[in-house]
Design a protein around this nucleic acid. Structure first.
Lengths: 184, 184
DNA sequence: GTCTATAAAAAGATAGAC
DNA sequence: GTCTATCTTTTTATAGAC
């Protein structure tokens, strides 16, 4: 198994069980690797694993999400592309966000990297809006609103056992983001 | 220490460290009670504790949030009252939602109660909107949007280490909820 | 790079005195 | 109702063979 496949499995485990809830025994069971093998790949144990998954996620954010936002088309088509990728990544609202999962845990060590990722995402969205002539401050707020709606919709989907609200949010976001502000 | 004070401390611990992250040792340390004493109050251990906290939360939801929504005033003043209480409960965006925390954990046992609480909250919001003449289906969607924005704003606040977005959401929600739909 | 075996530490849980 | 002491189980981590 490649390091990359292993990282994807770890992502899946952390999303499902949380950081503390994903025990080495469970990780060993799911991956089919013995604990000693896991420590061979990740000498620092679980913390190493979570760090690796976060780096994997940062790359995916850059390669799939941010790149959509910097592509050629109109603002609305770029946001639509972003939303498509986001929906795919969260499996239509049936998967959690690892950022949220790790933020809810007992460890502070991941907050910095998560903050960095969120800020990259926010900035990329805001830049599209600024290109559209929206004031920087408003652009930043709309970007925050977009991400916050995605995150909240994932929570609600999980809590209700029903991803409908997530799909509604994803569908309307491109239009909502690009609507001109009242009075402009 | 009364059972109620103890429950509040447990709520605080679970919000801060998550379910798995709030160990008995830490609970013992913070509450000042030995482990055996904790088992005296909660024979079922941590699961009992989380259940007690969820029940405490359900009562608080009923007594503070839902009652606001069923009070005398206009729709907008009722939503404003709800938002005031919500903001207070989450300390202006600096505290997590226990529902989200527990949903991110490894235990499935709390999902049912959480779903019940969310549905009560959703219904109470939707009922205010229906009274205002908004179509039931739209009312339900707006209620979902409100809760989802609150939840997402709490995540973003924690991720960015900055509760600004939460406060913005809380401030605009009363107006956003009561705005008439286009074409009505 | 993976395994078996084992150790060390922590977490969950209980007995019994006061 | 709380404590000390103890126990069991689980989790994390490592040594050393292949």
């Amino acid at each position: 198994m490649s390091k990359n496949e292993l990282t994807v499995q770890l992502l899946c485990l952390f999303r499902q069980y949380g950081y503390e809830g994903a025990t080495l025994s469970k990780i060993s069971e799911v991956t089919g690797l013995g604990k000693a093998s896991l420590y061979h790949h990740f000498p620092g144990g679980k913390e190493d694993m979570a760090t690796a998954v976060l780096e994997y996620l940062e790359q995916g954010l850059e390669r799939h999400i941010l790149q959509s936002l910097r592509s050629k088309g109109s603002a609305i088509s770029r946001f639509t592309q972003m939303c498509d990728r986001v929906s795919q990544f969260y499996e239509g609202g049936q998967q959690s966000c690892l950022f949220a999962v790790l933020l809810m845990g007992a460890h502070d060590r991941f907050q910095e990297k998560i903050q960095q990722c969120l800020n990259q995402w926010l900035t990329a969205i805001a830049e599209v809006l600024i290109e559209e002539g929206i004031q920087p401050q408003l652009a930043q707020q709309r970007a925050e609103d977009a991400i916050l709606q995605i995150q909240g919709a994932l929570i609600l989907a999980r809590g209700l056992g029903n991803p409908t609200a997530f799909q509604r949010v994803i569908t309307r976001l491109p239009v909502e983001l690009t609507h001109l502000p009242p009075g402009s």
